[in-house]
Simulated scan of single mutants.
Amino acid sequence: MLIKDVAVSLPSRIVTNEEVIDMIRFHSKDYEGDIDRGMRTIKTLLDRSGLVNRRWCESHESPIDHVAMATRKALSETYLKPEHIELFIYVGIGRGFLEPGNSHMMASTLGFVNAECFDVVDACMSWTRAMAIIDSLFKSGQYRNAMIVNAEFNMLAGGPLYPGNFALKSQAQIEYTLPSFTIGEAATATLLVAKEPDNFTFAFRAKPAVSDLCTIPIPGYEGYCHPTERIGKNGDMRFTSFGHELHKNSDELSAVLTKLPVPKKDIDIVFTHASSKAAWQGYGAKVGIDDKMYHIYPETGNLVSASIPAAISLAKDGGRLKRGDRVLCWVGSAGMSFNVSSFRF
Rank of each mutant, 00 (worst) to 15 (best):
M1R: 08
K4N: 05
K4E: 11
D5Y: 00
S12Y: 07
I14L: 05
N17W: 02
E19M: 01
E19H: 00
V20Y: 02
I21R: 01
R25F: 00
H27Y: 15
S28Y: 00
K29H: 05
E32L: 09
D36L: 14
R37H: 12
R37S: 08
R40V: 13
K43W: 08
T44K: 15
R55K: 05
R55S: 00
H60W: 09
S62P: 00
P63G: 04
I64S: 08
I64V: 11
H66F: 15
A70E: 12
E77V: 10
K81A: 12
I85K: 13
L87H: 07
G92S: 02
H104V: 11
H104S: 08
F112R: 09
F112W: 10
N114I: 06
N114L: 07
C117I: 11
V121A: 14
M125L: 02
T128Y: 08
R129G: 04
M131T: 04
A132K: 09
A132Q: 08
A132V: 01
I133S: 01
D135L: 10
D135T: 08
S136E: 07
K139N: 11
S140V: 11
Q142V: 08
R144Y: 11
A146S: 04
M147A: 12
M147R: 14
E152W: 02
G159M: 11
L161C: 09
Y162F: 14
P163M: 11
A167I: 09
L168E: 14
S170M: 09
I174P: 07
E175D: 04
T182N: 07
G184N: 03
T188M: 13
D198G: 15
N199A: 02
N199H: 02
F200E: 02
A206F: 10
K207W: 14
L213D: 04
L213N: 05
T215L: 00
I218G: 07
P219H: 04
P219Y: 08
Y221C: 09
C225M: 09
H226I: 15
R230S: 09
R230I: 03
N234T: 06
N234H: 01
G235A: 09
R238K: 15
F239T: 01
F242H: 07
H247P: 04
A255N: 12
T258D: 13
P261Y: 04
V262D: 13
I267S: 02
I267T: 07
I267F: 05
I267Q: 06
T272S: 13
H273Y: 10
A279G: 06
G282I: 15
Y283A: 11
D290Y: 02
M293F: 11
Y294C: 03
Y294S: 01
Y294A: 06
Y294M: 05
H295D: 10
I296C: 05
G301R: 00
L303Q: 07
S313D: 11
S313N: 07
L314K: 09
L314G: 02
A315G: 09
A315F: 12
D317H: 09
R320N: 13
R320S: 12
R323L: 11
D325W: 03
R326D: 01
L328C: 06
W330C: 04
V331I: 06
S337M: 05
F345Y: 15
